[in-house]
């Protein structure tokens, strides 16, 4: 009997596919998310929109918060550590979380190195903006990838940009002759073996969700139609007027993402979505997606 293998790490992400992972900050939020049909929750002290508003250094959540959320639900519980902060990751592993998000939403602890994730039994999900970044994280041991988007904005534009970058690069890799793949790995700044694998299979070797700015059922279905495997919703649910109704609607939109009749039905009467931010009006230092490389 073998635990903590690559297969079981990637396997849990495969079980989450077609689902919605929701940011929660209290046990009550976690229950609302589970009852709405979330396939997992992300246990946090603050949702990204509030992290943005608070400023300062954003760190791993207090273990008390994570423990309380673990007690409240039976679905998988994820938690975030800072980029490169392998001790926060060790603590989250000791707490028994099901997945760790090495996340740009928190303030990075290391601007050169991400965590060596193969050293852990618990699996990791990491953010990316393009195919090279995705493959670098997978090379370090990330068993799941999410496009970064721009967290806490309620604006889907960056999520779309990053998903198109990753999926477009995979399509362009198809059919390249073997003698061009090393140069392509150099251009992507990605491990050669993973570039070869993506060319051969036509997909990432791990599950790929979308994150960062998804606020409506239509946003979720848009990302699914672009070709991601599932959805992270952060501030979009609990910063809206009616979180339970919006959470249910986003879950249904993620399942029935190709059925415009159902999308129209579930988009009705959800009340105010979260107030969005125009990413173009933000200063470079306010962007979270540029953290990590």
């Amino acid at each position: 009997m073998e635990k903590g293998t690559w297969t079981v790490k990637v396997g849990l992400a495969q079980m989450l596919k077609g689902g919605v992972i929701m940011d929660v900050v209290t046990p009550d939020h976690a229950k609302i998310a589970e009852e709405a049909g979330a396939c997992a929750v992300m246990a946090l002290e603050r949702v990204p929109a509030d992290i943005r508003a608070a400023g300062g250094v954003a760190r791993m959540a207090d273990p008390t918060v994570i423990e309380a959320i673990k007690q409240a639900v039976t679905i998988p519980v994820m938690a975030k550590c800072r980029i490169g902060h392998f001790v926060e990751a060790q603590i989250l592993e000791a707490l028994g979380v099901d997945y760790i998000d090495e996340s740009e939403v928190l303030t990075p602890a290391d601007e050169e190195h991400h965590i060596y994730k193969h050293a852990f039994t618990v699996p990791f999900v990491c953010g990316c903006r393009d195919l090279g970044e995705a493959l670098r994280r997978i090379g370090e041991g990330a068993a799941m990838i999410r496009t970064k988007g721009e967290a806490g904005t309620g604006n889907v534009v960056e999520a779309v940009r990053h998903a198109r970058a990753v999926l477009g690069a995979i399509r362009r890799l198809q059919g390249l002759p073997p003698d061009e793949l090393m140069a392509e790995a150099k251009n992507l700044r990605a491990p050669y073996e993973l570039v070869v694998e993506v060319e051969r299979t036509g997909r990432l070797p791990v599950v790929n969700f979308a994150a960062g700015g998804i606020a409506t059922p239509a946003d979720a279905a848009l990302m699914m139609q672009l070709g991601v495997d599932g959805i992270f919703v952060g501030s979009g649910i609990f910063k809206s007027a009616d979180p339970a109704a919006r959470a249910r609607a986003i879950v249904q939109a993620t399942t029935h993402f190709k059925d415009a009749t159902i999308l129209a039905e579930v988009s009705r009467g959800l009340g105010e979505a979260m107030t969005g931010l125009d990413v173009r009006s933000m200063k470079p230092e306010e962007l979270l997606a540029t953290r990590g490389w």
């Binding site: 009997m1 073998e2 297969t7 849990l12 592993e93 618990v122």
Partner: peptide, 10 residues
């Protein structure tokens, strides 16, 4: 069997 850390193959 517990949480994800206890997932296994056999």
């Amino acid at each position: 069997f517990g949480r994800q850390a206890d997932s296994f193959e056999v």
